[in-house]
Write a protein that binds this DNA or RNA. Structure first.
Lengths: 323, 323
DNA sequence: CTGAAAGCGCTTACAG
DNA sequence: CTGAAAGCGCTTACAG
């Protein structure tokens, strides 16, 4: 990014700098044929240098319609989780810059996505997920957020995050640490779990798994489960690593109701670092704005038929009062 | 809307039909001065007749920048509720048609809204709310969703909804009906409560109020509250009217854990009719897509300095298995 | 009060 | 391979 780009560069400015016509600039920028590689490279360099951002409005005006990007959810009805709300908020902004709008497609509407959208972002991929195949069948550019596979993807380093937070508890002297999540058999959970396991095994500790039923009220479900468990065996664990912040909140409520002190008797950690929800909670932060931004960036590359990239998104351990 | 408007009418088409220049059409459409009232009316009629929708892209292209619309939340941190998620989804689409994007402003960022946005949608208004004044100070067009006040507003007929659902329970033979909500003293809650009260008084029944603490996990909070209450007095009520679907889910879980049968022993109702969350639940549906659409419509009028309108949005009783 | 024309930033036939 | 020009739908000086 050039500091001089005070007045947001447009295609004309780039043409002027490159000393070519705006038609060539357009072709270079859009990966269209009919331009020499040398010129393309030169133009691309200049556009990068000026921090060029295409005008969404102008593109839309020509294409005649807004590009709808389908946000496709896995088969679990977790679409209403705060994490997705935040992700959606940031996707809205990032997509708008390119003249696009996100539209949510719950699992039961996946089949209609290819006709209603010009691109897709896949979330909550599951084993034997038919969606990537469906997208390819319709030649729809898409990016997955989650584990890398064929095509483009942005993957938050959750494994690393769970390793770090588990390690943190171990270093704090915890020895009976449980991992709480739902649908632990899914590939996604397995990936997360492996981070936990790695840390536990390195410390030669036995793992304890709490597999709670998948639900729309994670906090409530975690609470009920823990109340029952604590009733029969209050000393079962001295640390709980939760798969997300909502579960952690449920755990905290249960421990409070059972009169157990946090973090003295039991440490609790969350994941995601959601605003308000994660207040006071030791957790692992996901950089949602960045995930959204990068996803849209890759989606643009996908529609230009560029070669697939996988982008890892770092996560960060945030230590607060519950550990 | 004319059925013949197959090929979305543009400003040229309207000019042709009205036999005037496109400049006049533009002026008429945008409430600009320098056009006779007669011509304006005629053009407006024709544009309505053709179902004219201005091109967001073209407008944006001229204005040079996307119009950011701030979605401002009240002082409670309920921004992550599913209701707002859905509202946000529909606002995204409706705003995009006008070339605008919604950006959420949590309560602590309200002060920065006027500089960062070109318009606002106010949610969760509270007593002595400084926001309308702030908006006016900065001459920012805005629409409130909720109780009417000065300026434009869209108000879901919640009072009617609570009346209807309460009436429904009464007709089903319930006599000890409780109303569960949080922050019952707020103007918003008072408005809802009045619907409940009206029905109860008409049937000469005593009202019971359950004022639970405001929280980020309404289901969990409702559950804990009810578990405690039911423990001491299981027969306290035979019907619970909840302020939203999440609270109702918490109640259902508690009743289930206490071994009480729904709806035989206790009826439970929700509000909003959120997808998945309200499954199987008797509730009151809010037409969120319509609310979003109308809000954006009024926002457009607000920026044209037209005279304020208040739009009531009907709600609908949905009877399912919990009553 | 009304209209003809320029221009917003881009893409895409059409020539060369 | 490269460029000049038209045009997407609208707004806004500029004339009249």
């Amino acid at each position: 990014m050039n500091a001089k780009s005070s007045k947001a560069a447009n295609i004309q400015e780039i043409a002027r700098r490159a000393n070519v016509s705006i038609a060539s600039v357009s072709r270079a920028l859009n990966g269209k044929p009919g331009i020499s590689e040398a010129l393309r490279e030169r133009i691309l360099d200049i556009s990068r240098d000026t921090g060029y951002q295409p005008s969404a409005a102008a593109r839309q005006l020509i294409s005649g319609k807004a590009a709808v990007v389908g946000i496709s959810l896995g088969r679990r009805d977790f679409e209403l989780r705060p994490y997705y709300f935040l992700l959606y908020q940031h996707l809205t902004v990032a997509l708008h810059r390119q003249g696009m709008v996100p539209i949510f497609f719950a699992h039961d509407r996946t089949a209609t996505l290819p006709e209603e959208a010009g691109g897709a972002i896949l979330l909550g991929e599951f084993g034997d997920d038919p969606r990537p195949r469906l997208m390819r069948q319709h030649n729809l550019p898409f990016v997955r957020i989650g584990l890398p596979g064929q095509g483009f993807s942005v993957f938050p380093e959750e494994q690393q995050g769970f390793h770090d937070v588990t390690q943190h508890l171990i270093e704090g002297g915890r020895r009976r640490i449980a991992y709480m999540g739902d649908d632990l058999q899914s590939p996604h959970s397995q990936h997360r779990l492996s981070g936990f396991r790695q840390a536990m095994q390195a410390a030669a500790l036995d793992e304890r798994l709490i597999d709670i039923p998948s639900s729309l009220d994670p906090a409530l479900t975690a609470y009920r489960w823990l109340m029952q468990r604590l009733g029969s065996d209050p000393r079962a664990c001295d640390g709980i690593v939760c798969e997300n912040d909502e579960l952690a909140r449920g755990c905290l409520a249960a421990l409070d109701d059972m009169g157990m002190r946090v973090p003295d008797e039991v440490a609790v950690t969350g994941f995601d670092d959601l605003p308000a929800l994660a207040e006071g909670l030791t957790t692992v932060r996901q950089d949602i704005p960045r995930i959204a931004e990068k996803t849209v960036e890759l989606l643009a590359e996908a529609r230009l038929q560029q070669s697939p990239r996988h982008l890892a998104m770092p996560v960060e351990l945030i230590v607060r009062g519950t550990s």
